[in-house]
Design a protein around this nucleic acid. Sequence first.
DNA 1: CGCTTATATAATAATACACTTATATATTGA
DNA 2: TCAATATATAAGTGTATTATTATATAAGCG
Lengths: 114, 114
Amino acid sequence: MKVSTVDIEKTAMLLKLLGDKTRLTMVKILDSHDCCVCEFVEIFKMSQPAISQHVRKLKNVGIVGETRRGQWVIYSLNKQSEYYPLIQDLLEHLPNQDDKLQELEEQGLRISCE
Amino acid sequence: MKVSTVDIEKTAMLLKLLGDKTRLTMVKILDSHDCCVCEFVEIFKMSQPAISQHVRKLKNVGIVGETRRGQWVIYSLNKQSEYYPLIQDLLEHLPNQDDKLQELEEQGLRISCE
DNA sequence: CGCTTATATAATAATACACTTATATATTGA
DNA sequence: TCAATATATAAGTGTATTATTATATAAGCG
């Protein structure tokens, strides 16, 4: 079966972007749940600026989009991205990360994001 | 359908490794043809040590193996690697690179590798 | 409006990366 | 055994990356 192909240079750029444990996990999580920065801060036990900077990189190549909801900015995977078919195939090889959000839920730290 | 999953940390490491235009192209080429260093030097118009260093990185994580054939060292994709299922899915999204080897062939620079 | 919370941005410092040049090793063949 | 070819390794260098700290912006609320 035929699969959408992406230029090798752009693909290398994408893989480098996803070649970071934090960003890769973010994308895996975002594939099933939208999230805001403060949730990622909790999940990754990382400073807020560090998280913002990772998110920005994902936004810059268009694989993540944002919506403001009150004081929060909700991030989501952009499933219209030219890269999404590849990302989707990639993510299938990763173990589910739902436990991370569940932990937040139990601590009452989950935001209204859905 | 169920797909083999790899630890998220190891996957990030793999993606970082493949997040380089040269290495990604190497892997795409190796998926259909074994090659030696001197061929890569021609294809990428890059110094021999630079090529050797890229190949070494691919070897170090076990996705590429080597066989000596005379004075040449022939590199091939290790299809037994735990990463291969993921790599295979990835490569499907890349355009064919056969033109690069064909060019070598025409210049009579293709080695006995098959 | 001023305080709090959420997020972004800028400057900086430590580390990692991908080349280069120089040199070493291994195989072939005269 | 010596020269040529193929490859590997080491050291050095410029650039990229990822974190930190400090500060700016933006929305919500008393």
